[in-house]
């Protein structure tokens, strides 16, 4: 059995999912309960926090960061308070994030004909990559992508001075399809 927090998380996953060899289960359980009582089993808290928060995101419709039009229709029918925003890549603006809403849904028009794969990249103005969001969901004929996020994340993002880049892959390789400064 391996050690370290990520190994502890993996071991707990194997235990819960029934992948731990039966011969190891008794000793694993003894150790797990003893460490839990000592407050030294952080993998337990991590797993339960993660499960609960993901389930809450699922219920709110934000467990899918990118939607297609069918997902948008589902979200709008869910009863959540959704603020819709159209982001023009050629003239990006910051959405109005005041007032009462729960989810920000941003439509970004992009020419998607022939596109097989889309990634987004968020950079500081001096070019440092803050995050990469791979594998954006899209339907080429919709010629738009839809980003969905919680209000709190939208407000945090709106305060950041960043450059967002959208990269497409098609039969001719990888190309930049949009670059949007913000903030």
């Amino acid at each position: 059995m391996k050690h370290g927090i990520d190994d502890a998380i993996a071991n707990l996953d194997d235990y819960v999912r029934g992948h731990l060899p039966e011969g190891d289960v008794d000793s694993y359980e003894e150790d797990l309960f003893a460490r839990a009582l000592d407050d030294e089993a952080p993998e337990l808290g991590f797993r339960q926090q993660l499960a609960r928060t993901l389930q809450s995101m699922q219920a709110r419709g934000t467990v899918r960061p990118w939607l297609t039009e069918s997902g948008v229709a589902e979200l709008l029918a869910s009863g959540m308070s959704v603020r819709r925003f159209e982001l023009d890549p050629a003239n990006p603006t910051i959405p109005d994030l005041e007032g009462d809403f729960e989810i920000l849904l941003t439509r970004i028009p992009v020419a998607l004909e022939g596109v097989k794969h889309l990634d987004a990249e968020i950079l500081t103005p001096d070019g440092h990559v803050l995050k990469v969001m791979p594998d954006i969901a899209f339907v080429p004929s919709e010629n738009a992508i839809y980003a969905c996020c919680e209000r709190e994340l939208a407000r945090t993002a709106a305060k950041a001075k960043v450059v967002s880049r959208l990269w497409a892959r098609d039969d001719h390789g990888r190309r930049l399809v949009a670059e949007m400064p913000s903030g």
Binding site: Q49, R52, M57, V63, K131, L153, T156
Partner: peptide, 21 residues
């Protein structure tokens, strides 16, 4: 004590590949 900031997990989750998600 079992609380995660939803927006923080959302930020991290979006950085996983589609298969991982």
């Amino acid at each position: 004590h079992l609380e995660l900031r939803r927006e923080h997990l959302e930020d991290c989750f979006s950085q996983l590949t589609e298969r991982s998600r």
